[in-house]
Amino acid sequence: MPTKQHPAYPFARRRAFAVPSEYAWLRENSPVARVDVPEIGLVWLVTRYDDVRKVLSDPRFGVEPPGRAGSNDSLFQDPPGHTRLRSLVSKAFSSRYAAALRCEGHP
């Protein structure tokens, strides 16, 4: 259950394209904060662009969330597992392949 120290995430949107007030407050006052995510628990939420770039470019940080160790879901894997799965499907997502499908009358 979320506490005052650790807000529940994701934040409710009051309007479709508005930044949730909790997120705006964290970005201004606590740009790297712990939040409580259902079924996962406490995680770090990084809210500022420069901080996000630092985290994403630092190999000490992984992408596999807690409780998903050994998952085959390539979205949540670090190299070398992600690299291996990406090489298997990369041709299907290439611009050349998409163009060939359009030429064949596919959307």
Score class of each variant (00 low, 15 high):
L75K: 07
T3P: 02
P65A: 09
P10H: 06
P31V: 12
E22R: 01
A98V: 15
K4T: 13
L101G: 09
T83A: 15
H6R: 12
F76A: 11
V37D: 01
D58P: 02
R14Q: 09
Y9D: 03
P7Y: 04
A100D: 10
H106N: 05
S30Q: 12
E28N: 09
L88M: 14
P31Q: 07
L45A: 09
R68V: 10
A24N: 01
V89A: 13
A69C: 03
Y97D: 07
G81E: 15
P107H: 04
G70R: 04
E28R: 15
A12N: 06
S74A: 14
V35F: 04
I40W: 00
D58C: 14
V89N: 05
R15F: 09
P65M: 08
Y9H: 11
S90Q: 14
L42F: 03
R60Q: 12
V55G: 05
Q5P: 02
H82Q: 13
N72W: 10
R13Y: 04
S95D: 10
P66T: 09
V43M: 15
P2W: 03
S21H: 06
P7R: 13
P59D: 01
F17M: 13
R53P: 02
G81Q: 15
P10E: 06
V46M: 05
D73P: 01
H106T: 07
K91A: 13
E64L: 12
V37I: 12
R14E: 12
P59G: 05
A8T: 11
G62A: 09
A92K: 08
F11D: 03
R27T: 09
S90F: 01
P7K: 09
A12C: 04
E104R: 15
L75M: 13
R48M: 03
P79R: 10
E28D: 14
F93N: 08
F93T: 14
P65K: 08
W25F: 09
A24D: 02
V89M: 12
P66G: 08
P7W: 04
A12D: 08
M1Q: 12
A98C: 07
G81L: 14
V89E: 05
S95W: 04
R102D: 00
V55T: 08
H106A: 10
P80H: 06
F61M: 11
H6E: 07
D73V: 15
A8W: 05
V32F: 02
E39T: 15
L75Y: 05
E22G: 01
